[in-house]
Amino acid sequence: MTEQPNNNDNARRYWARNLRLLVTFLVIWWVVSYGAGIIFVDALDGITIPGTGFPLGFWFAQQGSIYVFVALIFLYSWLMNKLDKEFDVHED
């Protein structure tokens, strides 16, 4: 088990990197749900996903946003594990 980093600077830089990741991910989260699924739904409904009957906005609201949510969490988790190692703040 690693000791808690004594180096305050290391912890601060780790946190800053994490915040940057969080902002990026939350922007994507917001865009696929509130953006594509709600605010721009009427505009996107003008497009039908090729080969299906889904209006694009409706699809994002009832299917697509959920798939993106799942992917976001796994991706964030993977990137954070890498970040933990890079800054030597991982658990074992």
């Binding site: 969080l22 991910f25 939350l26 699924g37 609201a61 959920i66 949510f69 969490i73």
Partner: peptide, 29 residues
């Protein structure tokens, strides 16, 4: 509910799944 609400049913679909992104990113760890 969704069957009778159509598109509006998305409030439950997104609302009850999107919270997990907040949980995973902002709270759980």
């Amino acid at each position: 509910l969704i069957s009778f609400m159509g598109y509006d049913g998305a409030v439950y679909l997104m609302g009850w799944t999107g919270g997990y992104v907040l949980l995973a990113l902002l709270l759980a760890p």
